[in-house]
């Protein structure tokens, strides 16, 4: 099957500092890849670069996504093409309700796809359905995006947005951080139920914990900007046993 994502020799950094030092990665539809590694390895940078965060610079390499040059696209175009990044630290937007935020996101996406705008009733139905999907209380819809949300509510909101946008490739950046077990289950359950043969996910995490709920097909260990080891789920246990420092390529 054709790869959904193909990264070749990716070097990237921020303000003259190189963080990714040659990443190669291929993701096929239907797969879940886990990227594990110690703090500062470049895990979040990889997610940010794939989503097109403007303050990162790609200095070498290529990224093909659904056969297209991902790096040539603006962040919003990447989203329209089905890429989604769940933020490690979701941003608060006072004065903009979650409803209006999602309306803006969805209407731009539908416009790009040449689809007519959803009627207010259709939109509301979708919104309610997806909020129920992640067990979010309906009053969150009228609240400002992430303002006054607890850590768990913010992450749940990320998965809600993911469900609304129905991405082809989801990148979950440390979605487990700051979650208690119940919130972790809800988030993981949401991700699992969104799994389909035609989409894929990259789960970035520091700990084994999340991967007990979202079982990956492929596990990569990222250290100092390079993938030093790739294997199956058994690699997770090896990390648990030996720690990142003992594992090399």
């Amino acid at each position: 099957m054709e790869n959904l994502l193909e990264i070749h020799g990716l070097h990237a950094g921020i303000a003259e500092r190189e963080i990714l030092k040659g990443i190669d990665l291929a993701v096929r539809p239907g797969q879940v890849h886990a990227i594990m590694g110690p703090n500062g390895a470049g895990k979040s940078t990889l997610g940010a670069v794939l989503a097109g965060r403007p303050d990162y610079t790609v200095t070498a390499g290529s990224v093909r996504y659904r056969g297209k040059d991902l790096l040539a696209m603006a962040p919003e175009e990447r989203s329209w093409e089905g890429l989604f990044l769940s933020f490690q630290y979701p941003i608060e937007i006072p004065g903009v309700s979650l409803t209006n935020f999602m309306k803006a996101a969805l209407s731009a996406r539908r416009k790009h796809a040449g689809l007519p705008e959803l009627s207010p009733a259709e939109f509301l139905r979708l919104l309610r359905e997806k909020m129920a999907f992640v067990q979010m209380k309906s009053d969150f819809a009228s609240r400002s995006v992430n303002v006054g949300f607890s850590g768990g509510e913010k992450k749940r909101n990320e998965i809600f947005q993911m469900a609304m946008l129905d991405p082809t490739l989801s990148i979950l950046d440390e979605t487990d951080s700051g979650l208690d077990v119940d919130a972790l289950r809800i988030v993981a359950d949401g991700v699992n139920r969104l799994r389909r043969p035609d989409n894929a996910a990259i789960v970035i995490t520091h700990y084994k914990r999340l991967l007990e709920y979202i079982v990956p097909d492929v596990v990569h260990i990222l250290k100092d900007g390079r993938i030093v080891r790739t294997g199956g789920p058994e690699l997770v246990d090896l990390i648990e046993e030996k720690g990142f420092s003992e594992i090399d390529g």
Partner: peptide, 25 residues
Amino acid sequence: EQFYMRSRGIPEAEARRLQMLSFLS
């Protein structure tokens, strides 16, 4: 904030508009 919105598919101009709205709200 702008990147967060754009990563959800909100075009840059609309993201800027929402940011200004947010600021003035």
